[in-house]
Amino acid sequence: MERIPILKMGSFLLVTIQVDMHDQLAMTLQDDLTARIVSDRASGVLIDISSLDVVDSFIGRMLGNIAAMARVLDAETVVVGMQPSVAITLVELGLSLPGIRTALNVDRGMELLRAGNNGDSNAGRENG
């Protein structure tokens, strides 16, 4: 079955979405990530969407679900690399991704995850 690969780096899981996902592929990623957070005892998830030229309400909902499920499993999620045109479109669509931490690029996303790991467990959870 077609799958998006999930990489492990220390206590973090890294995902780079590089294909135009159909809905089932997105759902599979959500399930896989949730399972891996538990099996790998991950404390953070970084999702790189810099290759995505479209994020519609389905993908937006998937990102929100991943962040919410990760939080329940005591892991932080950061979505990085959103293209400006995608950000403009998402907000106009009516989706502002509440509860999802974002960073401009992978470096900054990793910084956020590491900072979260150093005990400041409430960082970025104001929306919760």
Binding site: V54, V86, T89
Partner: peptide, 17 residues
């Protein structure tokens, strides 16, 4: 423009689904 492309593609995705 890239923004207009993204808008119509996103709308297309919603309606196609």
């Amino acid at each position: 423009t890239i923004v207009d492309q993204t808008k119509i593609v996103t709308a297309a995705s919603e309606l196609a689904r």
